[in-house]
Computed example of a mutant assay.
Amino acid sequence: MDKILVVEDDKTVYSGIKKLLELQHYSVVIAQNGMEALEKIDESFSLVIMDIMMPQLDGIETCRRMRERHSVPILFLSAKSEELDKLEGLEVGGDDYMTKPFSNMELISKVKALIRRYLVYDSGSANRTNKDETIETDGLKLFTNRNKVEFNDNEIKLTGKEYEILKLLMKNPDRIYTIEMIYEMVWDEAFTYNAKNTVMVHIKNLRNKLIKACGDACIHTEWGRGYRFER
């Protein structure tokens, strides 16, 4: 049974989410603010669902602190419709976001997709009997059966989505991927207009980490077409 941490200060909202998730056979733990969430989070969780606006410690800062130790996917909830709040959440390490009010089906769809990807790439549940293959170019090495990337034997810490984007592009370095293709292949959902910024922020974060680690962004923009890997 996958374990989900719901971080939300509105009892009506978190009670509804808890009931919905438990009907889908998830184990749910509630934290009513960011400080409580940081006390409860550990490696046993498969997902965090977190409101942005909360007392004591908001979702943005809570996410930033979680990312110092944990790679568990984080799904942001926000009552605000402004893009800046959503983008800030993604920039500090959030994997996806939903704007309140949202449908039950939309929430369950995102929960299943995020957990499925996490179990394969982040938590080590991939079949370790398979050969741990790598993709390597000029010192940059990506391990295909686990969320691990190195440059000259020094690990580059990536979130699950950053790893999946890099893996997709590195496997086919001569191919140009549109934003729509990247979203549907990495997030495992149908592309919508609002998903455009989600992809762009993740690629921005990934580029910054690659530049810091190996001096090269590696992911190149083909204007009007998409992105490709080249080093």
Results as ranks from 00 to 15, higher is better:
2 D>L: 07
7 V>T: 01
8 E>C: 08
10 D>V: 08
11 K>F: 00
11 K>Q: 00
11 K>N: 01
12 T>Q: 03
13 V>I: 07
18 K>G: 00
24 Q>D: 13
26 Y>A: 00
28 V>T: 07
29 V>I: 06
32 Q>N: 10
33 N>F: 03
37 A>Q: 08
39 E>Q: 12
40 K>D: 15
46 S>Y: 12
48 V>K: 06
59 G>Q: 10
64 R>A: 15
73 P>A: 06
76 F>A: 13
76 F>C: 09
77 L>H: 13
77 L>W: 06
79 A>L: 01
80 K>P: 05
81 S>K: 15
82 E>S: 11
83 E>M: 14
91 E>P: 10
91 E>F: 07
98 M>Q: 09
106 E>Y: 14
109 S>D: 12
111 V>D: 05
118 Y>G: 04
119 L>T: 13
124 G>Y: 11
125 S>R: 15
127 N>L: 14
128 R>V: 11
129 T>R: 11
132 D>C: 12
145 N>L: 07
147 N>I: 07
148 K>V: 08
150 E>C: 02
153 D>S: 15
159 T>L: 10
162 E>W: 02
165 I>K: 08
165 I>G: 04
167 K>A: 00
168 L>M: 15
168 L>R: 12
169 L>C: 05
173 P>H: 04
178 T>V: 03
179 I>R: 08
184 E>A: 08
187 W>E: 08
187 W>C: 10
193 Y>A: 09
196 K>Q: 14
197 N>L: 10
199 V>M: 03
200 M>K: 15
200 M>T: 09
201 V>S: 05
202 H>G: 01
203 I>L: 15
206 L>V: 11
209 K>E: 09
210 L>R: 12
213 A>P: 07
213 A>T: 12
217 A>W: 01
221 T>S: 09
222 E>V: 06
223 W>F: 15
224 G>V: 02
226 G>F: 05
228 R>T: 04
229 F>S: 01
230 E>D: 12
